[in-house]
Amino acid sequence: MAGTGDLSGTIGAQPFFDGIDAELRDLLAGCAAPMDFADGDALIRTGVIARAFYLIRAGEVEVMVEPPAGPPIVLETLGPGDVVGWSWLVPPHRGAFTARARGEVEALAFDGACLLGKMEAHPALGFEMLRRFVPVMAHRLSAARLQLLDLYGPDVPRPEMLEAEPEEPPPAPAAAGVRAEAEAAKASLAIVKNRAEDEP
């Protein structure tokens, strides 16, 4: 089993903890352990107390909703360098979604209760963790909103759909009609201009 010194180095090598202070890294190492998952293993389950978060070192994790009837709906896949789970940070600490290993997964697991205790005792660690978690949460929220938009779907208006729909082409006006229309437009423009000039 890896000692906390080894773990501290491993934690420091993770992009998520890039540039973290060595002292804080050692505090984190006291709450961390390497953990492997087999295909289909749940890292987090919907509604179940989330006791940890995970940093994926190898493999893929699916974040999904498991409806009572029908197959699970995968919302997102996460890979090496990604963080899985923040329910450990947010009361009542129950998983909002299920996260399952897709194939074999190697991860670093961080005990939530242990970390929360250390974050209370060491505000610098608390700040550091929030400073790193909040951008991830913001990115995921933004990505989820984009997914909701159904960007590529048929119902999103886009310029290419502004293509003219000449179902019934308008009849070509006679030249005299065009002249009359132009005169009428000129007259209405003159009215607008006069009104504008009258205003203080």
Binding site: I73, E76, T77, Y152
Partner: peptide, 17 residues
């Protein structure tokens, strides 16, 4: 893909990811 269907075993999520 934004929405996985069938036996899709690739990535799920927006292209910005």
């Amino acid at each position: 893909v934004d929405r996985a269907t069938g036996n899709w075993s690739g990535s799920v999520g927006v292209v910005t990811n």
